[in-house]
Write a protein that binds this DNA or RNA. Structure first.
Lengths: 227, 227
DNA sequence: ATCGTCCATTGATCCAGATCAATGGAACCC
DNA sequence: GGGTTCCATTGATCTGGATCAATGGACGAT
């Protein structure tokens, strides 16, 4: 059920549109629409032609890549306010990965050709796009370093710490995504994730309570030298 | 020994300047200079402020990240014609990684502020930059998938195959970089790389000859299902 | 040429995390 | 409300690749 009236305020406040400006926003919004989808829905599929960019208004989406043997991983998990699929749309190439709703989601669908036009004509929109791409590149570099240098428990600790809104001290991380998805994002099996989480709980580093995880001491959690 | 006369033809032919156009090129080249550096030289250091973009005119450069414990990996290896460090320069953030000359290199040094100005004023330059960033994001996604899904020997096979100029059949890959660097780029130890390379040679999948490696049958090399 | 240094190779052993295999539990549907 | 299904957890075992430990060779310096 497409909906032509997205929550404008929410869109206006995203880092992307804060940089791109009001004009770019209304230009992109005019031909766009929003979709509500339940957990598990597939938003787009690897190898298919990129007709839309997606901006997540609520919920979270997993970028899932499948290799030639059919095995799958999660490359990244995007949360509310994130705009993604710019590279595929811009290069007019097929998507590198599929997108799956990890929770119920609300997505703003922006036609790729409108975006390409806008970016060519509006310097502020181009600026916002370059910033976005730069940030996203750095996120992926960070993940590569994580995978190559850090052990499973350090990766988990960092993942949880980044989910806490407060920069310092104690906090609480919302983790509504399926465990298997998080494990895949972190480059490990669900079994390893589960075991490590329970061990951390036993040590008092974290407090598991279903879809929320409390971090009593962020510094201690990150500080652990397990290699 | 900065040199104010880079090989213009070489620069003009890079994918980046083919898109950015002649005007952007002369604008960026005017305040730039080239440097010749020996293998092992450090071009820039992690955490330092990004004052320059680098365009590699010859040789290859490794992006090396160091974690808090002092361990290092190689995030990416760039070859001639590549422009890198755009994200740090554009976001005015410190470099995420250090750059090391893996062979003797010739680098064109482009001042970051000139680049930022140019990108704001020249739409063709902005377009080239968005394409570059999009491509680079996809390269990192590819690497993440590689690390998460593929075994050491498959990663090596793919790495070698991508170094062969010819798309099909047999070919020869130049591998002038130190073995340890390649191992780090592939997320394994030099020991594992060495052993796997020798095993592949024994099976006739590749032919080792110092800094060159011949691939008699690209398809067979890639086809191996060792999961 | 000869030495020293660095890097690659080779060998032996170890271990973090994967895999295989049940079992437990929460959400969903008639 | 009681299956049914799916997902998370827990247990036992296995293994790809890391680590530790020598050698061997190539290259640059003298």
């Amino acid at each position: 059920m497409p909906d032509r009236q997205p929550n404008i305020e929410l869109v206006r406040r995203t880092p992307f549109f804060m940089t791109a400006g009001e004009e770019a926003m209304s230009r992109l919004l005019r031909p766009s629409f929003t979709q509500q989808l339940p957990r598990g829905a597939v938003l787009f599929d690897q190898d298919e032609h990129a007709d839309f960019l997606h901006m997540l208004l609520g919920g979270s989406v997993g970028l899932t890549a499948r290799d030639e043997a059919g095995a799958e991983t999660v490359v990244e998990i995007f949360g509310a306010g994130e705009l993604f699929l710019v590279p595929a749309a811009y290069l007019r190439l097929p998507y590198l990965a599929s997108g799956t709703a990890l929770t119920d989601v609300r997505v703003l669908m922006i036609p790729a050709d409108v975006f390409r036009e806008g970016v060519a004509e509006d310097p502020a929109l181009a600026r916002a796009t370059m910033e976005l791409l730069s940030r996203h590149w750095r996120l992926m570099v960070d993940q590569v370093v994580d995978l190559k240098l850090r052990s499973a428990d350090r990766r988990i600790a960092r993942f949880l710490a980044r989910r806490v809104p407060e920069a310092q001290g104690a906090g609480s991380a919302e983790v509504p995504e399926p465990r298997g998805t998080i494990a895949a994002r972190l480059g490990m099996t669900p079994e390893t994730l589960s075991r490590t989480l329970n061990a951390m709980d036993a040590e008092g580093l974290i407090r598991l309570s279903g879809k929320r995880i409390d971090l009593p001491d962020r510094e201690r959690l990150l500080g652990r030298r397990s290699r």
